[in-house]
Simulated assay, not measured.
Amino acid sequence: MKLAQALGANALADKDPLPPELRERLLARDPMFVASHWVLATAAVVGVVVALATLRPWQAALPRRLLLVVAWTLGVFMISRSVGLLGFGFVGDTLLLTGVRPPPAEHAALARELAWWDLLLWSPFFLLWGASWTAAGWRLGRRRAATEPRVPGPAQPPPI
């Protein structure tokens, strides 16, 4: 999606949970936003390569510890974002939509609309994405433990 937006498409750009002034700059194709979309598209490509590296035999070319750190960090970050620890997410959107946390008065309708989009589209997406990253990290860590040679301990006498 960020690649499409970097190339000029406005796919879901109007549903991005941004303050109105930033949202207008995004839709007007401000050079900062175009550049950020190129950076994010590049990061997505790198992420695909890293995700594949956790599963493919050529992972040995990359430091395993680095793959573990990246997978777990991205997984925890994305799950935190989906839950709402970073401002948006299931908790923040629910609080806003139920009126527990009032939206900004000057943008109440827009805030509610974006909260619905975030609650129904973006937060589940980030939860699934984060769960996938943590599963990849967990699997990579378990595979590492299974393939590491065991250091023999002191010899034990045979049972009698």
Rank of each mutant, 00 (worst) to 15 (best):
residue 109 A to G: 10
residue 129 W to I: 06
residue 139 R to W: 15
residue 127 L to R: 02
residue 141 G to I: 01
residue 109 A to T: 15
residue 110 L to F: 13
residue 160 I to L: 10
residue 151 V to W: 09
residue 147 T to Y: 07
residue 128 L to V: 12
residue 135 A to N: 11
residue 126 F to A: 07
residue 107 H to G: 07
residue 133 W to H: 03
residue 155 A to C: 08
residue 128 L to F: 12
residue 146 A to E: 12
residue 140 L to E: 05
residue 132 S to K: 03
residue 150 R to F: 12
residue 160 I to Q: 14
residue 115 A to I: 01
residue 120 L to I: 09
residue 155 A to I: 08
residue 140 L to P: 02
residue 160 I to Y: 11
residue 153 G to L: 13
residue 130 G to P: 05
residue 152 P to V: 08
residue 150 R to I: 13
residue 121 L to A: 12
residue 154 P to C: 00
residue 127 L to F: 11
residue 151 V to I: 14
residue 143 R to S: 07
residue 155 A to Y: 11
residue 137 G to M: 09
residue 138 W to R: 12
residue 155 A to H: 04
residue 109 A to C: 08
residue 154 P to K: 04
residue 112 R to V: 01
residue 114 L to V: 09
residue 148 E to W: 02
residue 109 A to L: 10
residue 151 V to K: 01
residue 140 L to D: 04
residue 132 S to H: 10
residue 153 G to Q: 09
residue 141 G to W: 08
residue 120 L to R: 13
residue 145 A to W: 03
residue 126 F to S: 07
residue 134 T to N: 02
residue 119 L to G: 08
residue 121 L to D: 03
residue 126 F to I: 06
residue 153 G to N: 09
residue 113 E to S: 13
residue 123 S to R: 02
residue 122 W to M: 01
residue 108 A to I: 15
residue 126 F to N: 05
residue 156 Q to Y: 10
residue 139 R to A: 15
residue 140 L to G: 05
residue 116 W to E: 13
residue 114 L to R: 09
residue 117 W to F: 13
residue 137 G to K: 05
residue 155 A to G: 10
residue 147 T to H: 13
